[in-house]
Design a protein around this nucleic acid. Structure first.
Lengths: 350, 350
DNA sequence: AAGTTATCTGCAATCGTTTTTAGCAATTTG
DNA sequence: CAAATTGCTAAAAACGATTGCAGATAACTT
């Protein structure tokens, strides 16, 4: 029961293929009624591949994230899908943080998609310089490959968010504030560390190198980093953790070591989570709208696909907000009663 | 800088297109060296769409899940991707639980993919009977559309899992055991309820209709269901919640109502989560390997794509395991010391 | 009714491959 | 040495749509 072709329809009605084709693309056609009927009778569906070949378009957009399993990336994907609407379908690539697989996947992408939304697993690679060569536009999200300037991107306001987080700890009276950071070679790792340092500087707190731990954005990394901090002669009294996964790891370490949060150590994380307020204790975090990031990326990409690069690259940023719960201790500086989920807005987008 | 075609390569080398095509498909060719060079020089990449048109294959598999944002579905997607390897790429559709959008998306699928892994948002629809008509094989995961028999499927062992969960509560001395269930019209909802009822029956505990609440697998649904249970004159002393999202909702309700878990109410959920042991109290759950489900679905699908339906449909099932933490109270029946994460295996797969 | 537009139509070319067919040269066989 | 086999090649026909062009109807003018 192989599918009927446009020529079957044409034959059945007694017109030429081009007339049927015209009917399909919405032109006025004399026998439109009988064509309609024939299409229905034969259960004809245009062959997408043939159409794509002719048009050079695929109606597909690739989305590459390091790991769909991370709720943050899943939100980006979902946001992108929503923004794509009915116009484009999504090809998902999530290599589980494997840069080599990612690169191989990108190679196989050419000709399959009209555009790419890209959260690279590794930013300091230079192999993807071929991008300039690729025939489709690319929008970076959250991370940007170093030697590729001139692309659109949708980042988070990492600096401001991290500064707010750090200041929140400072406002609670902490001065021994550690930072479990993501890779310094990554946009969010670097940006958040900058914000952390800026806040310390502003409060005239001398930075302690022991309190800066560069990790890798994973649960295990966060766990080990926290274990390291706990082993210090002079433990920090507060920790700002640079992403959601490492925060989970850090909390596991604290729990395992029976260190009370927030009494012995205050914790603030980056990126919120559905379960953040059920965790023990409910977690204070910096949050930003990943869904929005995905959606913005998609709409930017669709613009590029439509209009090309006649407009200069956009660098979009989404806000970071402070969500206060209980992992930083008493919220005396703010009114206690509505403190369970109070949101302080940070910077605005650019 | 539009891409070079096979004919450009042929011209440059001075052979025919077919020779180049042969070279590409691995045949022995006289001027293979110069062809290789020409391909490199021209940066030639075969046009996928043309190839697909000719071959009738797309090298794509669609994966439809209700919501990628749900870590359980994300794991299925990831599992499928891993199992696909380099042979097939994934098209992701996740409509956010909207059956209409899902149906529309399926319509647009024909001709784009060689197969479909399908976790339907709604199982009691009959509109998709056209499936028989679709030219590609389908493997159902976790849920199965009612009036479609004869398809491959990869389910979880819901009955056994639910029975184990319920028995766990019974073993703790509970008799007033409620069940916040998923839709009775869904495979997992129905199966888990059956397991729950079977375990009650086996323990000769009369079922109390007040204690069975049919909900909808969402956070809000779980919240409302738990609120309803708390409002009963005679509250249950234990609750078995039918999926991860509803468990979150139920816990939020309990927390908000300041009901202590497990002292006042014991809770056991279905489906584990990265954060389950950080929640307050650490959550005892039934867990199954969603990643494996996705991987099995993909390999089954690839077999179908390769061999067609010469073999009868497979109905695979993955195990459910009990992960004991603390939300069901003292684990006196088991040795206390390693109770934090003890795994009891349940049934085996079929 | 004839002339002028305005619509609609079919033909044929095209998109970039793969694959069948037939043919040519070189090698092997009887 | 003629015949058969092997190993490769080029030419041409698909795959199933879209589209420019020129010709055919139809619809208005006067």
């Amino acid at each position: 029961m192989s599918n009927a072709t446009i020529s079957d329809v044409a034959k059945k009605v007694g017109v030429s293929e081009s007339t049927v084709s015209r009917y399909l693309s919405g032109f006025k056609v004399r026998n439109s009624e009988s064509i309609k009927k024939a299409i229905k009778d034969l259960n004809y569906r245009p062959n997408i591949m043939a159409r794509n070949l002719k048009s050079g378009k695929t109606g597909m957009v690739a989305v590459i994230v390091p790991d769909v399993t991370n709720p943050f990336f899943a939100a980006i994907v979902r946001g992108a899908e929503v923004a794509a609407g009915d116009d484009y379908m999504l090809q998902l690539i999530s290599t589980g943080d494997d840069p080599e697989k990612e690169e191989a996947a990108i190679r196989r992408l050419s000709g399959r998609v009209d555009g790419l939304i890209y959260v690279p697993a590794k930013e300091d690679t230079d192999v993807i310089t071929e991008f300039a060569d690729y025939s489709f536009p690319v929008v970076f999200v959250d991370r940007v490959i170093k030697n590729l300037r001139g692309f659109d991107s949708v980042l988070a306001d990492n600096q401001t968010g991290a500064a707010i987080a750090t200041k929140h700890l400072i406002d609670h009276g902490h001065t021994a504030i550690a930072h479990i950071a993501g890779p310094a070679a990554s946009t969010p790792g670097k940006g958040r560390t900058e914000g952390y340092l800026a806040a310390l500087k502003k409060a005239k707190i001398e930075k302690n190198l022991d309190y800066y731990v560069e990790s890798d954005f994973t649960v295990l990394g966060g766990y080990q980093a926290m274990m390291g901090l706990l082993a210090l002669k002079k433990r920090p009294t507060a920790v700002f953790v640079g992403n959601n996964l490492m925060t989970i790891g850090a909390l596991k370490a604290l729990k395992e070591s029976k260190v009370n949060v927030p009494d012995e150590i205050a914790v603030i994380g980056f990126d919120d989570h559905e379960l953040s307020d059920l965790v023990d204790p409910p977690l204070t975090v910096i949050s930003r709208d990943a869904h929005l990031q995905g959606a913005l990326a998609m709409s930017t990409l669709l613009e590029r696909i439509r209009d090309g690069y006649q407009f200069p690259p956009k660098q979009l940023k989404v806000d970071s907000n402070l969500v206060i719960r209980q992992s930083c201790g008493s919220t005396c500086l703010y009114r206690k009663k509505d403190a369970d989920k109070k949101i302080l807005s940070s910077s605005t987008s650019s």
